[in-house]
Write a protein that binds this DNA or RNA. Structure first.
Lengths: 245, 245
DNA sequence: GACATCAGGATGTCCGGACAAAAACGCCGT
DNA sequence: ACGGCGTTTTTGTCCGGACATCCTGATGTC
């Protein structure tokens, strides 16, 4: 039944076999070799064709099911999901999003200095009140227009400089510094622009702004970054994809 | 090392063993028996204690890692994640959220009738333009105050009545009708209230509103619901948790 | 012809074992 | 006292098999 996939495995590679399989199936879907609704061969047959065991195949398929690319149904089989589920959502920053959209974002750093954490900031970052944390204030531009006003607080000032921040995104710099971000909690709302915000963002006073307060945690659940951002609603919206397991 | 968990298994239950284990570990974390940072016994020991095999234990732990409750590190062990990662995000509706928050939501159905799908709606629902779809317009109240104006389009009018919608949430009704929602794509933005919206929501004209356009798909990737909603920004915000795998 | 029953096919769950790789620890020499 | 090396611990990956459960379609009966 199934479209005969040709998947080649490299057993000497450090990349796990299940991952090699998953990637090549995903690639076949992207390429269009596997069209939406197409049924994969059953797991046992697939395992046989590739010379792998069924658990390994299952692990590969499960990985793609979690990503929303495949759908399994007991007694029926495994199919490529119908409809284009825009794959997105990873832990990205505004900068990443803009870059991917082909825009050329620029950044103006308004402020970059250590401050004593007040009660609220200390609470979310999980440090004692009064501890020195790095406070960061930036304006992000895209296409020559101001887009967002970004406030961030970070526990350990990991060697961030104004120059680096002007050229690259915060998340990119943190990742390069070896920080492994894993969980982010975001609260999204809206409110009217204050006069100061309106001036910085080239909007009328009282214009609707999209607000996002986010705290990002690493592997260990330690807060690595806390941000309070406002976006020009007329120029930006957020996209989120949820997958129920 | 680990705090001795007592987990009891029911092998005659139809609930999978790995799920029984996962639930009881999660419960121990919620209860505080397992504090953040606490190390679990290693997988082999755990399997031995419970009389299960290692793969089963691994499946249980993996489930909790995916949910963001545990963290695994090779050579180290499995720990309860530090910091409270507010668990949320499943595919819920505004109604569910309010109920969980202890509020008593009410709904006024403004309109409930079949309409011919225009180009845009037909596109997102995956039907031919002009096909009859159910259009639904509601105002949601909480604590006696209007909170949101909800517009929805559904492909097959699955026996929805005004009475049912006044008493329960749309998602609840769909689930009860056997619809299995799995993926949702949301775009979140903000804009100023139109005069009509301001009147319905008891806001001033031009007040900032949070907007959300969502399309929900089932197992097969078929669209089951499309909604365009506006929320009073002064009374509501959205919370989203992202977990990177 | 319609409904109930049965068989086949597929995924779901679970077991037991084996080796690899990464991280932490202790030992030892300098 | 310090640094390097090997050992131990623990999770990561992979195998092969067994039975359960669910869905679908065909068969058979009324």
């Amino acid at each position: 039944m199934g479209t005969r996939l040709d998947i080649d495995l490299d057993r000497s590679s450090p990349v796990p076999l299940y991952f090699q399989v998953a990637e090549q199936i995903a690639e076949a879907i992207r390429r269009g070799d596997l069209t939406p609704g197409a049924r994969l061969d059953n797991e046992i047959l697939l395992a046989d064709q590739l010379g792998l065991s069924r658990p390994t195949i299952r692990q590969a398929i499960q990985y793609l099911v979690d990503k929303g690319l495949l759908v399994r149904k007991r007694g029926v089989g495994t199919q490529v999901v119908h409809g284009q589920v825009k794959r997105s959502v990873e832990l990205t920053s505004l900068y990443d999003d803009l870059r991917r959209a082909g825009q050329e974002p620029t950044t103006r750093v308004l402020s970059l200095r250590p401050v004593g954490a007040d009660e609220a900031i200390a609470g979310v970052l999980g440090v004692a009140a009064g501890t020195e944390v790095l406070h960061l204030e930036r304006v992000r531009y895209a296409g020559g227009e101001p887009l967002a006003l970004l406030h961030n607080w970070l526990p350990a000032g990991a060697g961030l400089t104004s120059e680096a921040l002007a050229a690259r995104g915060l998340y990119e710099l943190l990742r390069a510094a070896g920080v492994r971000m894993r969980v982010a909690n975001q609260r999204i709302g809206a409110r009217a622009a204050t006069p100061a915000e309106a001036r910085l963002l080239d909007e009328r006073r009282g214009a609707p702004l999209l607000t996002m307060v986010r705290t990002t945690y690493d592997d260990q659940g330690r807060a690595v970054e806390h941000g309070s951002h406002v976006y020009r609603a007329s120029h930006y919206s957020l996209e989120v994809t949820l997958i129920e397991r």
